[in-house]
């Protein structure tokens, strides 16, 4: 069943958009904005920000909601950490979000390369705030530690959906508990680190299941929650089971705040990195007051 309602997106290509396009293309850095056909690309790029996607643009996993190419990835580019660092410096970003494809072909899932990238970014731009949206590294604490130890400010990892639908929505190598553990490890390793996770809505989950997932995220100390509408990128991905109304988003947002999240972004078109800077500063403020 497809819910059949579509959101309207205004397409405007400004100078800043063109600058990000040129810079990332010249340096050969992928962005998740492009790879996932993100509906917010115009808003973000026109405002001068992008989410870099490292370790190539081919993912080893086949999650059934995601538009990122799947298959056998290219070997890692050893210069990529420096390239990302140069891009961040060149764009004069004070807040950067970095994500990656899953690299189950690498023994450490790419954790070391990801960590190197964050370290390099901070070396070139010492005042930049780094948010990393990481894969699960197959739930290995040691790899989570490599990321946490870089000194990043926000550790994000998505559970994507409720427990019951995880085997349908995500790749078989992903796991609901495994993802919760990744978030738990990050918080245990550095309790001051802000952690973040997203749930996509519209796969057929029940309200009670969403609340259960939110409780599970709070249980492992997650600070920032993103709730958003699943939009089918192409007919190859799962159909949309339900389009949530703005009132339903408001209802879930209220429940989430009641459960103790420091900041909640609940909006149909929100994605994990959407308004990430604002979410971080608001969360920081609320945690410390």
């Amino acid at each position: 069943m497809d819910a059949g309602i579509k959101y309207r997106i205004r397409v405007r290509i400004d100078d800043k958009y063109i600058r990000i396009n040129r810079l990332t293309a010249d340096l050969g850095i992928a962005t998740v904005c492009e790879s996932a056909l993100c509906p917010n690309i115009y808003e973000c790029w026109n405002s001068g920000t992008a989410t870099f996607m490292i370790m190539g643009d081919i993912c080893t996993r086949g999650c059934r909601f995601c538009y990122v190419k799947k298959g056998i990835p290219e070997p890692l580019d050893p210069d990529e950490p420096k390239k990302v660092a140069l891009a961040v410096k060149n764009l004069e970003l004070d807040y950067v979000t970095i994500t990656s494809v899953d690299r189950d072909d690498l023994p450490d899932g790419g954790a070391e390369h990801f960590a190197k990238t964050i370290i390099e970014v901070k070396k070139y731009s010492p005042n930049v705030i780094v948010e990393a949206l990481v894969p699960d590294f197959q739930g290995v604490k040691e790899y989570v530690k490599l990321i946490v130890n870089t000194g990043l400010e926000v550790f994000a990892h998505n559970i994507e959906t409720v427990k019951r639908l995880t085997p349908i929505v995500r790749d078989r190598r992903a796991g609901y508990e495994q993802s919760l553990n990744v978030l738990k490890y990050a918080k245990e390793l550095n309790p001051k680190l802000i952690t973040k996770s997203s749930i996509l809505l519209g796969f057929g989950e029940e309200r009670e299941e969403i609340i259960e997932a939110m409780k599970d995220l709070r249980e492992v100390g997650v600070d920032i929650l993103v709730l958003s509408q699943y939009l089918r990128p192409s007919i190859k991905q799962l159909p949309v089971h339900k389009i949530y109304s703005i009132n339903e988003f408001r209802d879930l947002e209220k429940i989430a705040y009641g459960l103790g999240f420091a900041y909640v972004i609940a909006h149909p078109l929100a994605r994990t990195s959407y308004k990430a800077r604002e979410a971080y500063f608001e969360a920081r403020k609320r945690i410390h007051t």
């Binding site: 579509k6 309207r8 397409v11 509906p39 089918r232 192409s234 007919i235």
Partner: peptide
Amino acid sequence: KGDVVAEIEIEKAILEIESP
């Protein structure tokens, strides 16, 4: 400049294309 001249439907959304 900036007026929407056409709307395009893709699987994910409807894109409103502005005139540059």
